[in-house]
Lab assay of single mutants.
Amino acid sequence: HNLTITQGKLFFHYNPKLCLSEIHKMEEVSGTKGRQERNDIALKTNGDQASCENELLKFSYIRTSFDKILLRWEPYWPPDFRDLLGFMLFYKEAPYQNVTEFDGQDACGSNSWTVVDIDPPLRSNDPKSQNHPGWLMRGLKPWTQYAIFVKTLVTFSDERRTYGAKSDIIYVQTDATNPSVPLDPISVSNSSSQIILKWKPPSDPNGNITHYLVFWERQAEDSELFELDYCLKGLKLPSRTWSPPFESEDSQKHNQSEYEDSAGECCSCPKTDSQILKELEESSFRKTFEDYLHNVVFVPRKTSSGTGAEDPRPSRKRRSLGDVGNVTVAVPTVAAFPNTSSTSVPTSPEEHRPFEKVVNKESLVISGLRHFTGYRIELQACNQDTPEERCSVAAYVSARTMPEAKADDIVGPVTHEIFENNVVHLMWQEPKEPNGLIVLYEVSYRRYGDEELHLCVSRKHFALERGCRLRGLSPGNYSVRIRATSLAGNGSWTEPTYFYVTDYLDVPSNIA
Rank of each mutant, 00 (worst) to 15 (best):
E388G: 15
D385V: 12
D261R: 03
P332D: 09
S486M: 00
D311E: 14
D506R: 13
Q256Y: 07
T401G: 02
T497W: 13
V480K: 01
D250M: 10
Y445C: 10
S305M: 12
V443K: 01
L364P: 01
G322T: 10
E442S: 06
D408E: 01
S305K: 15
S341V: 13
L321K: 14
Y504P: 11
I366Y: 03
S268M: 14
Q384P: 02
K361A: 12
K406L: 09
F499P: 01
A463I: 09
P403I: 02
R469V: 06
E433L: 14
E265V: 09
N339Y: 07
P300V: 10
G412T: 09
S458E: 08
D503W: 09
C267S: 02
R286A: 03
R466A: 08
L487Y: 14
P434E: 04
K361Q: 12
R240E: 02
E378S: 08
E282K: 04
S344F: 11
G308H: 11
F372H: 05
A394C: 08
E350W: 08
Y375C: 03
S274A: 15
Q252V: 11
S304G: 04
P245M: 11
S239D: 12
F337C: 08
M427F: 14
Y212I: 11
G436Q: 02
I276R: 05
L228A: 03
P475N: 14
Q252R: 11
A395S: 10
A399T: 05
L232R: 14
R481S: 06
A399V: 04
A309Y: 09
K432G: 04
C269M: 02
E224P: 12
G374A: 14
G472L: 09
V423K: 10
T307P: 11
S223K: 13
K233N: 05
C456G: 01
S492N: 03
V443S: 01
K233M: 12
L237I: 13
Y292W: 14
F355C: 14
G207I: 00
V393L: 11
M427G: 13
S223F: 13
G264C: 03
K406A: 12
P300M: 07
P244H: 15
S251L: 08
N477Y: 15
N435D: 02
N383T: 05
N490T: 15
P244F: 12
S444G: 11
T340G: 04
T307H: 07
F372W: 06
A263C: 09
T210L: 08
V414E: 03
C231T: 01
S268R: 15
R301A: 02
V443M: 10
L455S: 10
E265R: 06
